[in-house]
Design a protein around this nucleic acid. Structure first.
Lengths: 183, 183
DNA sequence: CTTGGTGCAAAACGTTTGCAATGGG
DNA sequence: CCCATTGCAAACGTTTTGCACCAAG
């Protein structure tokens, strides 16, 4: 609980800093050297394995699993040990370099905390997802807080449901083929 | 995918039946015999292991993990095999007797589908949760659908965030003590 | 030179599956 | 009597941990 609470404190601290637009915690990581600078600044050593994680995340166009990162950019056999990848992703989360999200049942997916936070919506039918800026969800968040007193965040666990086309598909299936419940 | 889609079709079919308030699919399971009646009606045999699962879920005041169910009501060593518990929970979901939700990182939590659907909000700081009737979230759902085209459901994956008191605690911590990042 | 990070192996965790034995309908 | 269901064991995918070695600072 103590560790967990520290994690959350760090997470929410970073989040509020971003939301409020204050503080240096997110100095726009867009290349390896700004990432290594952050690491050193926060007391982390810069190793080959760590550079590799950053490179993989920079090269990716979306959040990656630890296994994908371990396989390296070329996609061949493990380039870095998966245990180290996990340890490094954890270390990077601690300093606000990386965030991870759980989209569905599979492995957690990690991304650089490039330009502030991202929040996610995902479709449980087609498994596709959408990343949006936190502001886009502020109205939803406000409504939830007024109704339930909860301050929702969809950064770590997304909004789950049906995307527009899957919703339409389900409507069709149940709207046309079995309108009034037969028996 | 095929299996997954059938699951979802069944799930959404059941959901729409509940939402529309039509059909017999949820005959208010409040005791073992109504549960066994449903099982037989849907072609499932009634075994000791299955009765045990139902009894555990009836005795519980909230959703339970498979392990808790396997331990039986007295809480002693495994009373029923955990593999059978998983198989039975799956079978029960298929006939609409049980639903499960993923609150945070731990094991899935299972509950009888007593009186229609439940949707969840959970706090990632204190791990507490709140179950609400789907109607209470319709306004939120509508807003999300208008903004993003996603039809959200918080039955299987909840709304995650901070409950009122944890939100207040975090506000205090960062409103007052915030300035120096505590490495 | 010292401490933190690495690779490897093994374990932990929640969940699923294969199989022979059994008990429900 | 038959076949669905069981218990056991083993495998699964993801993540964590213990430990001896190595390399960043």
């Amino acid at each position: 609980m103590s560790e967990r609470e520290m994690d959350l404190a760090a997470e929410y601290g970073a989040a509020s800093a971003v939301t409020a637009g204050a503080g240096p915690p997110a100095p726009a990581i867009t290349d390896v050297s700004s990432a290594t600078a952050l690491m050193r600044e926060r007391g982390l050593r810069v190793s080959a394995a760590r550079r590799l994680v950053v490179e993989a995340l920079l090269a990716a166009d979306g959040p990656m699993s630890a296994e994908q990162i371990a396989e390296g950019i070329g996609g061949r056999v493990p380039c870095s040990d998966i245990a180290s990848v996990y340890r490094n992703l954890q270390a990077f989360e601690d300093i606000g370099l990386v965030r991870h999200v759980h989209l569905g049942h599979g492995p957690g997916l990690h991304a650089l905390a490039v330009a502030g936070e991202r929040e996610y919506l995902t479709c449980e039918r087609c498994a596709d997802y959408r990343a949006v800026a936190p502001e886009e969800l502020d109205e939803v968040r406000d409504l939830i807080e007024r109704r339930f007193g909860y301050r929702a965040r969809f950064t770590h666990f997304p909004i789950v449901g049906l995307c527009a086309s899957c919703a339409a598909a389900v409507d069709d299936a149940f709207g046309l083929i079995r309108p009034p419940q037969p028996q």
